[in-house]
Design a protein around this nucleic acid. Structure first.
Lengths: 355, 355
DNA sequence: TTGTAGGCGTTATCAG
DNA sequence: CTGATAACGCCTACAA
């Protein structure tokens, strides 16, 4: 035990200005500090007169509660962390993809009083997500653009073991039970292929993305299901793989051109590859009138290119919103139970009339 | 003065698990808490043996300093705030624009130990940036996509009055002395117009963006300067205004078509408007062989469209980096003096061979 | 080289 | 209804 003696000290911030604290407000309003907090947190019964005095004093002093102190004592950061892949390196999905999802996250987080802490996965790839929670920089985490590779698997299962609230967007890991949100790419692809078949195409080549992405598996599954339902035999020699970049589509043009007399259409896993392919085919003298090419994602370029691309719309903004809301529900205890695997519906967008 | 009596309490977090604190590490290592801090902050002389003991204990307990407590006692959030316009509403600049800048900001901030706090300007537009500083949610602020309208002017001058460290990207306000970073759009436009003139075009229409954006003024200035230097009389009837959206370019097609026999080329302030215009002209039976159209920004679509668009590359990533570094320099006192107005060089990208 | 203890600005728990 | 004050986890002067 010890004796405390009041000692007055003056603290100045860099600018030399004084930082208004609760104490200042209390003094000016002639109440205790606790009362000021009560007013600001809308807690307990307070005489209206007292309340007004506090409000007036606070306004006069331009008082805003210090969020650092609040977060500290509440033991929560108020931050929703968002992990993005290093964007300059990512021509995989377009920036469009992340910008849309991020907007959805931002909107939902904002509505629920959370701030967004944005982090780019480091190049080394060894970003220790656990540390974010240990340091209490974030209360929950949304992960974008993760892949099914050992590093990602390890870091994510570490998070799950410690029961930290996280949500994956656009990716699932077989065997890892984590909350996740994605679009229903199985149905999306199914509908696209069905559309192609109904339009008279039967030999449909498929340019898939890397299988590290679970949505690549989904699209393949949809493709196969549609063929099956229309009594078309699956032909593995019609399956190709790109990396979602325009260039990879472009580079496949040669191969596709070699077989173009034996196929009716090409279904690319995203619009960028479709565009690249079309450009490559053009240079080889094959126009879209000779061979139908369709894409996926409904990125900007799908409507800007010439001719506009038939594609599948993915509700990116809504995916961000949903992930955020469910994640925050889970945190607040409003949502309990098994991990969710939400799949939002896609929409076929038919643009070119010739297919 | 009062008497303090030690009372032991147990605090459990929701998960029931124990949160490791400095105290735990100190106890295990057999040192004082202060010593643990010294080790983690690399402060003062410490016997190597002691240091190792602390490190070992910390590792054993998986200790990570609580950032909330650190920030609180250091009176800094460690956050660099970034204000974005509401993206879903923004088809003005492309999302590409913000994604690139944001990546640059993220990279620079990360290197200097700052986290990114992302905020979308609210729809009401009355987001009180001052409050961010008062609440200490951010140590500095980067503002993107602001316009020269009364609301923005007011909120920004309020920030400046209180001497908070802020930096504008892509916008300046005449009369408001604020740190800012942009590309050199005057030179960028100048070079584009010069290129057109040298290619034999003399009657060049100009589709500008809204004048609320300072870069619109800059582009116009560059356009005029280039004409002047080549003895071409400025003709106000060749100046049009869009809002940076593809649609606004598309809608101008009719007007442009009406005068297309009297002009040689159209210079659009961004690629999206250029693409929209081209689409509109196509529908009216005017191909790019009849009328040269060039854009600005070098967005994805500029290289994906057909034919690829001649445009001006803007160093978006570098703008984000530079703004961040200079802003943090200013905060740390490494940079003092008058507000900077950085202008990074652009680069003319000639794509179509017919112009 | 290391320990002690005050203070940061809140929240929340008790008394009154 | 309101005031007093412990506690949060850490940093940092100051003391030893």
């Amino acid at each position: 035990m010890y004796i405390k003696v009041s000692i007055v000290k003056y603290t100045l911030n860099k600018g030399g200005g004084h930082i208004t604290t609760r104490k200042d407000v209390a003094r000016l309003a002639g109440v205790s500090e606790a009362t000021v907090s009560r007013v600001f947190n809308n807690i307990g019964p307070i005489r209206e007169h007292t309340k007004q005095a506090v409000i007036k004093a606070a306004a006069e002093l331009q008082y805003t509660p210090n969020a650092l102190a609040q977060n500290f004592v509440r033991r929560r950061s108020g931050n929703l962390g968002v992990i993005l892949p290093l964007l300059p390196k990512v021509h995989l999905f377009s920036k469009y993809y992340f910008a849309e999802i991020l907007s959805g996250i931002g909107q939902a987080a904002n509505e629920r009083g959370y701030d967004l802490l944005l982090m780019f996965a480091s190049i080394e790839g060894n970003l220790d997500y656990l540390r974010l929670f240990h340091a209490r920089k974030v209360d929950a985490l949304i992960l974008l653009g993760r892949r099914d590779i050992p590093e990602d698997r390890a870091s994510i299962s570490a998070l799950l073991e410690d029961k930290h609230p996280i949500c994956l967007i656009g990716q699932r890991f077989a065997g890892l039970l984590a909350d996740s949100v994605d679009a229903d790419h199985i149905t999306g692809s199914y509908e696209m292929v069905r559309h192609l078949v109904r339009s008279g195409h039967r030999r449909i080549a498929f340019i898939n993305g890397p299988l590290e992405y679970s949505n690549s598996e989904d699209r393949l599954a949809g493709y196969r299901a549609a063929l099956l339902d229309h009594d078309i035999t699956f032909d593995a020699s019609l399956i190709f793989e790109g990396n979602f970049s325009r260039k990879s589509g472009y580079e496949l043009a040669h191969t596709i051109a070699g077989i173009h007399e034996h196929i009716d259409a090409v279904f690319a896993s995203n619009d960028r590859m479709a565009i690249g392919l079309i450009q490559g085919l053009n240079e080889l003298g094959i126009s879209y009138e000779d061979l139908t090419v369709v894409g996926y994602d409904n990125a900007d370029i799908a409507q800007f290119c010439n001719p506009p691309l038939t594609t599948v719309e993915v509700p990116l903004f809504e995916m961000g919103q949903l992930a955020t809301n469910k994640l925050l529900d889970r945190m607040s205890g409003k949502l309990i139970g098994d991990p969710f695997e939400e799949k939002l519906p896609t929409r076929l967008i038919i643009r070119s009339t010739n297919i």
